[in-house]
Design a protein around this nucleic acid. Structure first.
Lengths: 199, 199
DNA sequence: TCCGCCATCACCCGTTGGGGTGATCTTCTT
DNA sequence: AAGAAGATCACCCCAACGGGTGATGGCGGA
């Protein structure tokens, strides 16, 4: 029997997860939590085999809760759940010790499969998330730096100063970014980049 | 007995909603749908008292599904659900005939209460959503139009043409937008607006 | 070894953007 | 009736932007 702790601040999602997991013969939900702090407490008390952790939670967010749970018990196996196709959380989650990373619109099969896989010692990333993380739009590392500075409202001269290059170089990068993102101006490029989670 | 149709593309959320609603003595889930088209079909077949509709769904989004359901049956009572505190959907939803607008992190009590209220003929908006709808950053209706066109990559001349005003007028609006969003260029303004769900 | 990608820079060009100031007209509120 | 707020437009100005073309090293894969 795989003992699972479910932590999610949305009652609907929490109940949905529990309902789906209870349908599995080899999975048992032993505790639930509605915020990060509660999740840390319940993990400490119940020592579940698997903790399902929502990234976005009040009081203490998922990543920080994950860190504390792993600090309490370095053997703890945590699967991070997210609603958003936002890969920003992947690397922080993995660095904090997550063994799985799933989207909330996973099916019951995927969810149960992930729990069994992680309980068995494997690590599991949602394929869609891995794809998302790979959507770099063909931008180079340098172009990403320029893009981020653009998004912060810096003009070409400021970007040049920040990166210790000439303004001409920056303009070249900016033009290349436009071409790759299929935009004609920085406003569209920055928004595009944000929507595609590039920044 | 209030007969309810639940439409949500996320299996977890769908099951969560159904589980929570089945706990209520006076509510019965008579059908479920995983996308907008299915929702329209099920509504046509079952004629539920209340339809719970997720805004973000594949094939046919919630708003469009809502329009078709109401076209089939102008008496249909639909409650729109959303994960995001994005007020953009409020007005389109209401215009399309929604009788309720709730966030997915509503509690069982709020959800059941909303269903009973709408079934009884009232309309119900999530108070938090109403607050969110008020974060307009002090922008006027005209400034919103300009902002949206800016975000689509249009320049001042194009915006002027689209709104049937002079370019000078557009420039004035753009300057006012910058002041209100505390930005110095369109790239930052557009990103800012996106982050704050203004567009 | 050679080709391609990347980062760097230069120069030219016309267009656009953003700031400032001031004015008129309508509408709504007080 | 007075005042505030919004929408409209004009004129000036200079800096910034975006496009095009071309060139030079460096580095890595074929």
């Amino acid at each position: 029997m795989i003992r699972v702790l479910v932590a999610d601040d949305h009652p609907v999602v929490r109940e949905g997860l529990i309902t789906m997991l209870e349908l599995e013969d080899d999975i048992e939900v032993v505790a639930r939590a509605a915020d990060g702090e509660e999740a840390v407490m319940m993990a400490r008390r119940e020592h579940p085999d698997i903790t399902l952790l929502d990234v976005q939670m009040p009081v203490l967010d998922g990543i920080e809760a994950l860190r504390r749970i792993r600090a309490d018990d370095p053997e703890a196996r945590v699967i991070v759940l997210t609603t958003y196709r936002n890969e920003d959380y992947i690397f922080p989650s993995l660095r904090a010790g997550a063994r799985g990373y799933l989207l909330k619109d996973s099916s019951r099969e995927e969810l149960a499969g992930a729990i069994r896989a992680v309980a068995a010692g494997e690590s599991l990333l949602d394929p869609e998330m891995v794809d998302a993380a790979r959507d770099d739009a063909g931008l180079t590392a340098r172009e990403f730096e320029v893009l981020r500075l653009m998004a912060d409202g810096h003009n070409n001269a400021q970007i040049a100063t920040a990166l210790f290059v000439s303004e001409n170089t920056v303009k070249t990068h900016v033009s290349n970014i436009f071409a790759k993102l299929d935009c004609r101006d920085r406003a569209a490029a920055v928004l595009q980049a944000w929507k595609r989670h590039l920044i």
